[in-house]
Simulated scan of single mutants.
Amino acid sequence: MNNFLEWLGLSQSLLLSILVAVAVFTTFMTIALPILSGNEFKNRMKAVALERDQMRARERARLSIERERSRGGLRQDAGKGLAVTVVNKLNLRHLLADDKTVRKLKVAGLRGQRQLTIFLFLRAALPGVLFAVTLLYLLGLGFLADKPLSLRLLICLGAALFGFYLPNIYVSNLAQKRRQSIQRAWPDALDLLLICVESGVSIEAAFRRVADEIGIQSVPLAEELALLCAELSFLSDRRAAFTNLSERTDQEGIQAVTTALIQAEKYGTPLSQAIRVLAQENRDMRMNAAEKKAASLPPKLTVPMIVFFLPVLFAVIIGPALIQIMHLG
C-alpha cells in the first residue's frame, strides 16, 4: 500500500486529508440538498399554473387565428440556443421524433417543445461525447494498452451506442416512477372524488379539490389532475380532456375511469356508483401488485443470502473451532 502511494506521489496524511474532505463535503451536501431543493409540490404546481396560462394563451390565439385561416400561432416558441440550432439544422424532429416519442415524453411528465428539443439534442450529442471521452481514456491515457486496437475501438463504439439510447433509458425510468406514484395514489384519489361527487360538487370542482388534497401523497397525480381541470375549462370538447388524461398517465385504472366519465358525459349515466366500483377495483389491483412483489422476494434473496450471509455464518460457526485446532497444532 505504501509503495502504491509513493508511486502516486501521495503520503498517508495527504490521503487521509482528502478522505476527510470528501466525507465533510458529502455530509454537507446531504444536509444542504433537501433544504435548498425547496417544496417539490409547490414547484410542480407552479409549473402546472404556467402550463394553464400557456393553454389559455394558445386557445385565445387559436380563436383569433381561425378567423384569418391560419394556424401558425399554435406552435410554441422553442426559443434560441445551441440545442434548437442543432435540432433544426439536422432535422432531428423528422428523423428521431414521432407520435410515440411525444407520448412517451408526456408519460414521463416532459411536456412542451423545449423538452422535446432537449431530448433530441441529447440523443444526437451524447454518442459523440461518450465516444470522444472513451477514446481519450483508452488511447490517450493508455488504459487497456495490452489489448488489441480493434477491441478498444469496439468499446468506443459501444459507448457511443449507449449514449444514443441513454436518453430513452432515462425517460423510461422517469415514466416508470411516475406510473408507480400515480398507481399507488389513484384509489385514494377516487375515494376523494366519490365523496366530492356524492356531496353535489361539480366534476371540475371535484377534480380541483382532489388535486389539492392528493399532492401530499403523489405530486405527479396532483399535477395531472390540475392539468385536467385546466383542459376542462379551456377545451371546447370535454371528452378530449379526459382522453388526454388517460394518454398522459398510461394507466389502466385511469383509462377505465375516463371511459366512465366520457359515458356519463355523453349518456347522462350515474357517476357515483361507477366511481365506487372502479375505486374498489383499483384498490384490489394495488393489493395484487403488492402481493406479487412480496411473493417474488424469496427468489431474489437467494443469491444475496448465499453470497453475503452464509460465508459470515460459516465463519462465526467454524471460526472458533479452527482457532482451537491451530492452537493445538
Results as ranks from 00 to 15, higher is better:
W7C: 00
W7I: 00
L10R: 06
S11Y: 07
Q12P: 02
L16A: 15
I18E: 13
L19D: 15
V20P: 04
A21C: 12
F25M: 13
T26N: 14
F28D: 10
F28A: 15
M29F: 14
A32K: 03
I35E: 00
N39H: 07
F41Q: 13
M45H: 06
L50T: 01
E51M: 00
A57W: 06
R60Q: 04
R62S: 03
R62N: 03
R71S: 09
G72D: 12
G72P: 00
Q76W: 02
D77H: 11
A78G: 12
G79I: 02
G81N: 08
G81P: 03
G81D: 05
A83Y: 06
T85E: 05
T85F: 05
V86L: 12
V87R: 02
K89H: 11
K89T: 05
R93S: 07
H94Q: 13
L95Y: 05
D98V: 01
D98G: 11
D99A: 05
D99G: 08
L105S: 06
V107L: 07
V107M: 08
G112S: 00
G112Q: 00
Q115V: 04
I118C: 02
F121Y: 10
L122E: 06
A125T: 12
A125E: 01
P127R: 10
V129L: 15
F131S: 11
V133D: 09
L135T: 07
Y137G: 06
D146C: 04
I155Q: 09
A159H: 08
A160M: 03
F164M: 08
Y165T: 02
Y165H: 04
S172P: 00
N173D: 07
A175I: 06
A175N: 03
Q176G: 13
R178A: 03
R178N: 04
R179Y: 02
S181C: 02
I182A: 13
Q183K: 14
R184I: 08
R184A: 14
W186T: 04
D188Q: 12
A189F: 10
D191Y: 11
L192A: 10
L194P: 01
I195H: 09
C196M: 09
C196S: 12
V201E: 08
I203Q: 12
A205P: 04
R208K: 15
R208N: 14
R208M: 09
R209H: 08
Q217D: 07
S218W: 09
S218E: 14
E224V: 08
E224S: 14
A226Y: 13
C229Y: 09
E231M: 13
L232P: 08
F234R: 11
F234T: 11
D237A: 13
D237I: 04
R238Q: 13
A240S: 14
A241W: 09
F242M: 10
T243G: 15
L245W: 10
R248H: 14
T249H: 02
G253C: 09
I254F: 12
Q255S: 14
Q255Y: 10
L261C: 06
I262E: 15
K266Q: 15
T269I: 07
P270L: 07
L271V: 10
S272V: 09
R276V: 11
V277P: 03
L278C: 12
L278P: 13
L278Y: 12
E281T: 15
R283W: 05
M285D: 05
N288P: 00
E291I: 11
K292L: 10
A295I: 14
S296I: 04
K300N: 05
T302Q: 05
V303N: 05
F308H: 00
F308A: 02
F309C: 04
I317S: 02
L322D: 03
M326Q: 07
H327W: 12
